[in-house]
Design a protein around this nucleic acid. Structure first.
Length: 439
DNA sequence: ACTCAAGGCCAG
DNA sequence: CTGGCCTTGAGT
C-alpha cells in the first residue's frame, strides 16, 4: 500500500506511521494520545499554554502536546472505551477517501509544476502568484474529510457542544486558492474565472477584486461531488437522481462554501469561534445564493441547473414545489436586473458578515466589514448603471427575499433530516442538528 | 489471505 | 512516562 515517507506528524513533525485516531501521525503521538484518553489524564502547562511541540520538545509539556493532538484533529471517540483490539473503526472508508484525495492532490501539484516549468509566460500564473505561493507553502492537511461527524448520540453531543469539530474544519480545510490552482493545473484557467473578468474591467473597485478572488471555484467542487456520489452509490446504494443524491450535492456545496469563507479576506482574520457563529447563522442563505446565482448566470428555463451540469426537475411535495416556485421567481428578478459575478461576490460577503449574529467577540469588526462591503457594492452599482440607487435598493430587497427563502429551504432540509431519508455523516446534517439544538 | 488501525507490551 | 515493536481482528 502507498505510504508517503516524506509525511510529517502534524503534532511533532516526526515520521508518520499511519492513520491514528483520525490523523496521519507518528507512533509516539499515537501512543501519547491513547494513554491520555484511556487513562483520563489531565495535564497542566507551566508556561502560557503555547509551548512549541517538536520531536525534541514533545516530552516537555504534555498539556500542549495533547492540545495540539486535538487541534490537528485526533479524535477522542476513536479510542475505544471497551479496549477491544484489532478490527476496523467507522473511519475506515474516510481514511481511504482521504488517501485517494492526497494522491490526487500530489499528482495535481506535479502537473502544475510541470506546467509552470514549461510555460512561464502563462497569464494565469502571473496573475495568480498568491495561489502559487499558498500552493507551495501550505502543507496539505489530511484531516479535511475526517471532520465529518459520526452519528452515535454521545459523540454527536460532544461535537455539537464542543467547538473543536468546527474549529477543526475551519482550521484544517485545504485552501480555496489552493484548490483553484489545482483545478487550473489540470484544465487551465476556468472560462468563467472571476480573475479574467476582473482584469478586463478596470472600473471595479479594489475591494471587489479582492472579493472576486475569493470566489469559490467550480471544478474541484464538481470533482468532489462526483467522487462523493460514487462513494455514496457504492456504500449505500443511492440511486442517481434521487433526493439523496441532491442532498450529497448540497452537502458538498456547503463544504465548498465553508472552504471559501475560511480562506476569504476579512473572514480569515476572525477568531474561529466567531467564524463558527457566522457560518452557523448564514449557511443556508449562502447555499441558496450559490444555487440561485448559478441559475441567474448560467441557467436556462429548463429546470434547476446543478453544478454538475445536469438539469433536474423539482421533487414532489408542497414545500419543494413552493421552494421551487419562489426560487424561480427570485431568479427571474435577478436575471431582469442582470446581476453579475461581481455583485454576487459582494452579496456573499454581505450575507457572511451579518453583524446581528449574537455574542460575536469581534462584533465591531464584522460590522465594519459589512459596511465596507455595502460601500463597495453601492460604488459598483453606481459605476455600472445609471439607475444605480434603484439598483442597490432592489438588490437589498431581493436579499431579504433570499433570506426568507433560505429559512424555508432550511426547514425543508430539516424535515428530510428528521425523517431520516438522507445520507448521514456530513456537514449538512451537522448544521441541521445544530439548528435543532439551538433553536 | 491480506490490510492496517486499533490495543498491548516492556526496555529505557 | 515514553515510544518502538508486537498482536489482534473487522473489513476488503
Amino acid at each position: 500500500m502507498f505510504m508517503d515517507l516524506e509525511e510529517q506528524c502534524p503534532v511533532c513533525g516526526d515520521k508518520v506511521s499511519g492513520y491514528h485516531y483520525g490523523v496521519l501521525t507518528c507512533e509516539s503521538c499515537k501512543g501519547f494520545f491513547k494513554r491520555t484518553v484511556q487513562n483520563n489524564k489531565t495535564y497542566v502547562c507551566v508556561e502560557n499554554q503555547q509551548c512549541k511541540i517538536d520531536t525534541s520538545k514533545r516530552k516537555r509539556c504534555p498539556f500542549c502536546r495533547f492540545q495540539k493532538c486535538l487541534n490537528v484533529g485526533m479524535r477522542l471517540e476513536a479510542v475505544r472505551a471497551d479496549r477491544m483490539r484489532g478490527g476496523r473503526n467507522k473511519f475506515g472508508p474516510i481514511y481511504k477517501h482521504d488517501r485517494a484525495l492526497k494522491q490526487q492532490k500530489k499528482a495535481l501539484i506535479q502537473a502544475r509544476r510541470l506546467r509552470i516549468e514549461s510555460n512561464q509566460k502563462d497569464v494565469t500564473f502571473t496573475s495568480n502568484i498568491h495561489s502559487i505561493a499558498i500552493l507551495h507553502n501550505t502543507k496539505l492537511n489530511p484531516n479535511k474529510l475526517l471532520s465529518k461527524p459520526c452519528n452515535s448520540p454521545a459523540v454527536l453531543q460532544h461535537q455539537i457542544t464542543s467547538p473543536s469539530n468546527w474549529a477543526m474544519k475551519l482550521e484544517n480545510c485545504s485552501n480555496a486558492a489552493e484548490l483553484a490552482a489545482f483545478a487550473e493545473a489540470v484544465v487551465g484557467p476556468h472560462h468563467t474565472s472571476s480573475r479574467s473578468i476582473s482584469t478586463q474591467s478596470p472600473r471595479i473597485p479594489q475591494l471587489e477584486i479582492e472579493f472576486l478572488q475569493c470566489d469559490p471555484r467550480d471544478l474541484q467542487l464538481q470533482k468532489n461531488i462526483f467522487s462523493c456520489l460514487q462513494q455514496e452509490q457504492a456504500c449505500r446504494h443511492i440511486e442517481p437522481g434521487t433526493f439523496s443524491s441532491v442532498y450529497v450535492m448540497a452537502d458538498q456545496l456547503l463544504c465548498s462554501i465553508v472552504e471559501w469563507a475560511r480562506t476569504s479576506i476579512f473572514f480569515k482574520e476572525l477568531k474561529v469561534s466567531d467564524q463558527m457563529k457566522l457560518l452557523h447563522s448564514c449557511w443556508s442563505e449562502l447555499l441558496v445564493l450559490e444555487i440561485i446565482s448559478r441559475q441567474v448566470l448560467y441557467g436556462t428555463d429548463g429546470g434547476l441547473l446543478l453544478i454538475t451540469g445536469q438539469q433536474v426537475a423539482p421533487h414532489a411535495g408542497p414545500t419543494s414545489v413552493s421552494l421551487n416556485q419562489r426560487g424561480t421567481e427570485l431568479v427571474e428578478k435577478l436575471r431582469m436586473l442582470k446581476v453579475d459575478h461581481q455583485e454576487f461576490a459582494c452579496i456573499r460577503f454581505l450575507i457572511l458578515f451579518a453583524p446581528d449574529v449574537k455574542e460575536l467577540e469581534e462584533h465591531r469588526f464584522v460590522e465594519s466589514v459589512q459596511q465596507q462591503v455595502e460601500g463597495a457594492l453601492l460604488k459598483y452599482t453606481l459605476a455600472s448603471s445609471s439607475q444605480s440607487c434603484n439598483r442597490f435598493t432592489c438588490l437589498q430587497l431581493y436579499l431579504s427575499e433570499l433570506r426568507s427563502l433560505s429559512i424555508l429551504a432550511e426547514d425543508y432540509l430539516y424535515y428530510k433530516h428528521l425523517s431520516g431519508e438522507v445520507p448521514c455523516n456530513n456537514l449538512l446534517n451537522e448544521m441541521l442538528h445544530a439548528k435543532c439544538c439551538w433553536t
